[in-house]
């Protein structure tokens, strides 16, 4: 499904990584490891199509993502370091709007159900700026419940989350993998996925 062929990344005149090859099939999870500054985020941004690799190609279902364009974006949900929420909007407005922009228009009921699952039901009408870091993270991750895309690319999704929330996300990941979804993620925390094969990719 998702294939990386000889990927390389150059930042300034420094080569972060080269000759990265992998092939991830439906229902598989790939965890990207590496010390700080080894290019994990750069790799994930390449995989989303936000930036182009310095060399190599990324294929989705056998086709280069560069030629897929919008069709590829429709298959990906990316949650990065930045939460992607607006401070001045309420939690529920944020979720409705970000889902709609990702191509999934939802009703208010669906949104509050997702927020309830993420443990934010009492805060749905508060502006995001009054939330704590962990709660903001939950708002961003609530998108995973709504955007039913096959490929999830998650950059440090567990940062700032408490134990309960980490369990919740683990459950979500397992469920997604069981349904044949793909996950590419980086994390410095331990996660236990027992239901699916976990592939490890080590960046120098």
């Amino acid at each position: 499904m998702l294939q990386g062929i000889n990927l390389a990344c150059i930042r300034g005149d420094r080569e972060l990584f080269k000759n990265i090859n992998f092939s991830l099939e439906a229902g598989g999870l790939m965890q990207v490891h590496g010390p700080n500054g080894s290019g994990k985020t750069s790799l994930l941004r390449m995989l989303c199509g936000l930036s182009n690799p310095a060399a190599g190609e990324i294929h989705w279902c056998g086709t280069a993502i560069r030629s897929l364009d919008g069709d590829y974006f429709a298959a990906v949900t990316y949650i990065g370091h930045l939460s992607g929420t607006k401070d001045d909007l309420t939690v529920i407005e944020n979720l409705c709007i970000s889902s709609a922009l990702a191509g999934f228009e939802i009703s208010v009921d669906q949104a509050s159900e997702a927020l309830k699952y993420m443990g934010l039901s009492e805060r749905e009408s508060l502006p995001v700026k009054v939330l704590s870091q962990g709660q903001r993270r939950r708002v961003a991750l609530a998108r995973l419940l709504i955007c039913k895309t096959p490929l999830w690319i998650l950059d440090e999704p567990l940062v700032a989350l408490d134990v309960m929330a980490v369990k919740l996300i683990q459950g979500l990941l397992e469920q997604h993998l069981q349904q044949g979804g793909l996950v590419v993620m980086t994390t410095h925390q331990e996660i236990e996925i027992t239901t699916a094969p976990v592939m490890q990719l080590q960046l120098a």
């Binding site: 936000l50 919008g70 069709d71 429709a74 930045l82 992607g84 607006k86 922009l101």
Partner: peptide, 22 residues
Amino acid sequence: SNDYLDGTLEQMLLSPQSLSLL
């Protein structure tokens, strides 16, 4: 710039809809 700083612009770029329209 505000959308850039909080990451919502990134999400717009990843939208399956045409970016020009956005």
